[in-house]
Nucleic acid binder design. Structure first.
Length: 665
DNA sequence: ACCCGTGGGCTTTAGACAGCATGTC
DNA sequence: CTAAAGCCCACGGGT
C-alpha cells in the first residue's frame, strides 16, 4: 500500500513523501485496512519504531473534526506536538502541566496534544476544547495497567466516549499479552504485529559469549585480568566497546543511578577510546560518522562536554562533561532536565557513543542505538529486589536498531553465569509480555475519580457513579464488576472527609471544598492533609506561621514526592524539627508515621533553604539529592502551594505564607 | 612505618503526571 | 516480611 493511495490531500501526500514515507509498513497498512482512515476504532499493538506516529497522523488527518492525541510523558507530548504542527494545514496545540500553547484557545486547534492527566484535569475544569472531538489517539495505552496512572487513563477515556459517543478512538500499545482485551473494551479492530523496520536479535551473554535468538553467536571473552570489577560489568564494557568499534552506538541499562554513573566512569578508559579510534580510522567512513556524526569526533565530544558544563555548573554537570569528553554519558532522573535533554539530543545526533542509563530511558523519548545491553534485570524495591517486568525489558531491547542507519539491532542481556543464562532466556527472550489489567479497583484511585465524577456533575448519586464507571476498562473486563462495595466505601470516606455531602433527594454532591480539591487536581488525601494543616494554623500564633509552615503542610501531603532520609542525617533533621517546632503543624509526638513526617520535614527544609537563596550545588551536596530531584520537588511544591492557597480560601483561613513561599520558589 | 588485600557490617536502592493566570525581549 | 551490591573501616599480612 502506498501513501499516494490513501485518502489524503495532495499536500499531505507530498509532505510524507518528502519525509521518505512512500510505501506503508505492514502494520500501518493493516491499520488502514482496519479502518483508521475511515473513522474506525483501532487498537494497534506493535513494536516501538514500527511507525505508530504515522498511524496516529492518518487518524487525525482523516478525522472529520478536531483531534486529541494523548500520551504519558510531557517530553513525548512536546515531540509529537512539534511533529504534528509541521503537517501542512494543521494547527496543533499542546497542553501539559509545564507547557501550554501560546494562545489559550485550544478550542480552535485541529489537533491538541496532551498528557492524560491534563485531559482529565481539563474535563474537571470545564475546558471547551475537550468537546466536539472527532478523534482521540491514545499512545502507550498499555499504561492502563500502571497502578498510579492507569485508572486516570481509563476513566478519562470512558468520560470522553460518554460525552462524544461517536468519537473515533485509536489506541497504540506496546506488544502485550492481551491486546484483544483493550480492543474489545474500545469496540475496536485489533491490529497486532511484531514487524520491525530494522531486524532485532536478542541474546544472552554468559561465559565469554552471546547466544542470540536467531541462532547466531558472538564470542567476546572478558579480560579476566581486571580485578576490582565484576564479570557482568566487564562483559557490559566489552559489549559496548565492540558495538562502538563496529561503528554503532550503544545503550547500557543498569538498576540504579549510582551504577549508571559508575559504569559511565568505567567506560571512560582506553578501551572505548581504542574503539572510537578504530572506528574512526576504520574500514568505512560510516564508522567515523557513527562516533560523532561530524567531521572530527574528538571535537564533537569536547563540544558536548562544553554544552553540558554550560547547562549547569554543578558537580553532576562536571561529571557528565568529563564522561562526555570520552563519548560517554549517564542518564537518570537525578539529572537536571536540561542535562537530560542535552544527553538525549547529543546521542541522537551521534555525538555521543554510549549512554549508561537507569530503566527510565526505555520509556522516554526516542533514543535508538545499534546495541542495547541490559546488565541488570532486577530492580530494587523498598523490600528486596524484583525482576523487571517483561514488558519493560522488551521496551529496553526495542531501542536497538536505528531505521535507515543500522543494518540491524542487537539486544543483549548480561547473565552472571551459564545457569542464569537459561533463566534470562526463558524469562525475557522467549517469554510473552505481561497482561494488561485494570487497576481501577484501588481504593485511592476510586476516591479520586468518584469525587471528580460528582464534582463535574456527571454523577449525582452512588448509582450514577457506578453507571459512569460502566464505560471503563475495568468494567469491560468482568461481567460482574462488583464495584458497588468499593465505590460505597469511597463515597463514605469522601463524605467523612467533608468533600462530598448527601443531598435532600438522597443523592450526593460535592462540597465547596470537594469541588476545589477536584479542580486543583490534588488527590482527596492531599486535600485532607492540607485542611488539617489549615486547622492547625488556625490555632497557632500568627507570628509562627511562616513559609516553613506552608512548606511542611505541602511536603507532608501524599501528592508530594518523598525524599530519602538516610540514617546519617536522621538525627540532624530531628534536631531541626525540634528547634523549629513552633512553626510546624505536626507535633513531634502526633505524627501517625513519624518516619514519613521526618522525610517531609527534610523536603520542607530543602525548599526553605532554596527560597532563602541556597544554590543547587549547596543543596545537592548537603542533602544528597540530584539537581533533577530538586527541580521536581520545586515544581511540585509550586503546584501544591497554589492548591493549598485555593483550599485556604474555601475554608476561610488566611495564610499568606502559601502565596509568598510559592512566589519565591 | 606503610601499603594492600580481605572481610564484615552498614547503608542504600527507578521514575514522574497534575493548577492557574498571564505577560515577554 | 522477602535482596543484593557498594562503601567504609578495621584488621592482618607482607614489605
Amino acid at each position: 500500500m502506498r501513501v499516494a493511495d490513501l485518502p489524503l490531500s495532495a499536500e499531505h501526500v507530498a509532505h510524507f513523501e518528502a519525509e521518505g514515507i512512500e510505501e506503508l509498513y505492514p502494520p500501518q497498512a493493516a491499520a488502514v485496512e482496519a479502518g483508521v482512515c475511515d473513522g474506525g476504532n483501532v487498537v494497534a499493538a506493535v513494536p516501538t519504531a514500527s511507525g505508530k506516529t504515522f498511524v496516529a497522523e492518518l487518524a487525525l488527518l482523516t478525522a472529520d473534526g478536531p483531534g486529541l492525541y494523548v500520551c504519558p510523558l510531557r517530553a513525548l507530548a512536546r515531540e509529537k506536538y512539534e511533529e504534528f504542527d509541521r503537517l501542512p494545514g494543521v494547527d496543533a496545540g499542546i497542553s501539559t502541566g509545564d507547557y501550554d500553547s501560546a494562545a489559550s484557545d485550544l478550542a480552535g486547534r485541529d489537533v491538541v496534544v496532551a498528557t492524560s492527566e491534563k485531559v482529565d484535569s481539563a474535563i474537571r475544569n470545564g475546558a471547551e476544547w475537550v468537546d466536539d472531538l472527532a478523534c482521540v489517539v491514545v499512545d502507550e495505552v498499555h499504561l492502563l495497567g500502571s497502578p498510579g496512572r492507569g485508572p486516570t487513563l481509563e476513566v478519562t477515556l470512558a468520560t470522553l466516549r460518554r460525552r462524544s459517543p461517536d468519537v473515533q478512538v485509536v489506541a497504540l500499545s506496546a506488544t502485550v499479552d492481551n491486546p484483544g482485551a483493550i480492543a474489545s473494551w474500545l469496540d475496536a479492530e485489533l491490529v497486532e504485529s511484531t514487524w520491525r523496520p530494522v531486524d532485532l536479535r536478542t541474546g544472552v551473554y554468559a561465559d565469554d559469549g552471546v547466544r542470540f535468538d536467531d541462532g547466531t553467536e558472538l564470542s567476546l571473552p572478558v579480560d579476566a585480568a581486571d580485578p576490582g570489577s565484576d564479570v557482568d560489568t566487564e562483559a557490559t564494557a566489552e559489549l559496548v566497546a565492540d558495538a562502538v568499534a563496529d561503528g554503532g552506538q550503544a545503550l547500557a541499562f543498569v538498576s540504579s543511578r549510582r551504577e549508571a554513573e559508575a559504569l559511565a566512569d568505567r567506560l571512560t578508559d582506553d578501551r572505548l577510546t581504542d574503539a572510537v579510534d578504530a572506528a574512526r580510522e576504520g574500514a568505512s567512513p560510516d564508522a567515523a560518522d557513527a562516533i560523532a556524526g561530524v567531521d572530527d569526533p574528538g571535537m564533537a565530544a569536547a563540544e558536548v562536554a562544553e554544552e553540558l558544563r554550560e547547562a549547569g555548573a554543578t558537580a553532576t554537570g562536571e561529571r557528565l562533561a568529563e564522561a562526555a569528553a570520552w563519548g560517554v554519558a549517564f542518564h537518570h532522573a537525578g539529572l537536571s532536565s536540561d542535562h537530560r535533554t542535552l544527553v538525549e539530543r547529543a546521542f541522537r545526533q551521534r555525538r555521543l557513543a554510549v549512554i549508561c542509563a537507569t530503566p527510565t530511558l526505555a520509556a522516554g523519548v526516542n533514543v535508538p542505538a545499534r546495541r542495547v545491553v541490559v546488565r541488570d534485570q532486577r530492580r530494587y524495591t523498598g523490600s528486596g529486589t524484583e525482576w523487571l517486568p517483561v514488558l519493560e525489558v522488551h521496551q529496553m531491547c526495542g531501542r536497538a536498531g536505528r531505521p535507515h542507519l543500522d543494518p540491524y539491532g542487537e539486544a543483549v542481556l548480561v547473565a552472571d553465569d551459564a545457569d542464569e543464562r537459561g533463566d534470562l532466556w526463558d524469562r525475557y527472550v522467549t517469554a510473552d509480555p505481561e497482561r494488561v489489567e485494570s487497576k481501577l479497583r484501588d481504593p485511592a484511585a476510586l476516591r479520586t475519580h468518584t469525587l471528580a465524577l460528582v464534582a463535574t456533575g456527571v454523577a449525582g448519586s452512588q448509582a450514577e457513579v457506578l453507571d459512569a464507571l460502566g464505560g471503563t476498562f475495568y468494567a469491560s473486563r468482568t461481567s460482574n464488576p462488583n464495584l458497588g462495595g468499593v465505590v460505597g466505601d469511597a463515597v463514605a470516606a469522601l463524605i467523612d472527609d467533608g468533600l462530598l455531602a448527601p443531598t435532600d433527594g438522597g443523592g450526593i454532591e460535592a462540597t465547596a471544598l470537594g469541588a476545589q480539591v477536584s479542580r486543583q487536581y490534588v488527590t482527596p488525601d492531599t486535600g485532607v492533609r492540607i485542611v488539617e494543616g489549615l486547622d492547625a494554623v488556625a490555632s497557632m500564633d500568627p507570628d509562627d506561621v511562616t513559609e516553613l509552615t506552608a512548606l511542611e503542610i505541602v511536603c507532608d501531603a501524599p501528592d508530594m514526592v518523598d525524599t530519602y532520609l538516610g540514617n546519617a542525617e536522621r538525627a540532624e533533621i530531628y534536631q531541626f524539627a525540634r528547634s523549629r517546632s513552633a512553626e510546624l503543624t505536626t507535633g513531634m509526638t502526633e505524627a501517625d508515621d513519624f518516619e514519613a513526617w521526618l522525610e517531609s520535614v527534610k523536603t520542607a527544609r530543602i525548599l526553605a533553604e532554596w527560597i532563602d537563596g541556597a544554590s543547587v550545588e549547596e543543596l545537592v551536596d548537603a542533602y544528597r539529592i540530584g539537581p533533577g530531584d530538586l527541580e521536581s520537588r520545586i515544581e511540585r511544591a509550586e503546584w501544591l502551594l497554589g492548591a493549598a492557597a485555593a483550599l485556604a480560601d474555601v475554608v476561610g483561613v488566611d495564610v499568606p505564607a502559601f502565596a509568598s513561599a510559592r512566589s519565591r520558589l
